[in-house]
């Protein structure tokens, strides 16, 4: 589903990713762990299409198509979704309107009819319940005045509405208390299916107790240095990252 080969990425002339290889198949959940500055957020943003990242070598293919040639919205239409580490506040842009514009642009792109206002509100209400988000959030400006936990829940809510085939969760667990973490994790778990893949970037093993990964990768110095199953996360929690780098 997602195939990353020998990916080299620079930001402002500084090499961040240095030959990263990663393959994610449909139905799989991958956790990317690693020390600060290893390139975890860069990886998420390069896949989602943020500008300012220079791909100097390598490739990223998604469902056989070259993802790097696509704009962020085209990637979203192809089924890519990034839950931001720091969701952006957009005063004056209504949360529901953003989603409606996104959903209908995708449907249009796929040759499906647009949802009317009624159908859309039904969809949105159902998904809001999924992440226990109060309906009042729907009519508010995007992330404006939301607490840290509300922002993260809003990301998972958006994900649920947009129904991506590849979900990238960038430190979705950071700053969440245990109740919020449980809600967010259950939202993600409900999305798990045979034709969807999830890549989650995290610092902590804690999240993996709630969303069980099939693979755990250690990203350090711009490369995947080690891959294992969920027990690797426990080992990392105990021993840190240095032993992986030194090995």
């Amino acid at each position: 589903m997602l195939e990353i080969k020998n990916l080299h990425v620079s930001v402002g002339g500084k090499a961040i990713l240095k030959g990263l290889n990663l393959e994610i198949k449909a139905g799989e959940v991958h956790a990317i762990m690693g020390p600060n500055g290893a390139g975890k957020s860069t990886l998420s943003n390069v896949i989602a299409g943020r500008s300012g990242y220079e791909v100097t070598a390598g490739s990223v293919h998604y469902q056989g198509e070259d993802l790097l040639l696509k704009s962020p919205e085209e990637r979203a239409w192809a089924g890519v979704f990034l839950a931001f580490q720091y969701p952006v506040e957009i005063p004056g842009v209504n949360n529901t309107y953003l989603l409606k514009a996104g959903v209908n642009a995708k449907r249009k792109h796929l040759g499906m009819g647009e949802l009317d206002a009624f159908e859309f509100m039904q969809l949105v209400r159902e998904k809001a319940r999924l992440v226990e988000l109060d309906a009042s959030f729907l009519s508010r400006s995007v992330n404006e005045g939301f607490s840290g936990g509300e922002k993260k829940r809003n990301e998972i809510f958006q994900m649920a509405v947009l129904e991506p085939t590849l979900a990238l969760l960038d430190e979705t667990d950071s700053g969440l208390d245990i109740d919020a973490l449980r809600i967010v994790a259950s939202g993600v778990n409900k999305l798990r299916s045979q034709d969807r893949a999830i890549m989650m970037v995290t610092h902590y093993q804690r999240l993996l107790n709630y969303i069980e990964p099939d693979f755990v990768h250690v990203l350090a110095d711009g490369q995947i240095l080690k891959t294992g199953d969920k027990t690797l996360a426990l080992e990392l929690e105990e021993r840190g990252y240095d032993w992986v780098k030194d090995a």
Binding site: S71, E73, A76, I90, A105, L162
Partner: peptide, 17 residues
């Protein structure tokens, strides 16, 4: 970027802003 990453076409995203 946030708006376009949700599938909103760039022209409409600019308008919204």
């Amino acid at each position: 970027y946030y708006l376009t990453s949700r599938g909103v076409p760039e022209a409409i995203a600019k308008e919204l802003l």
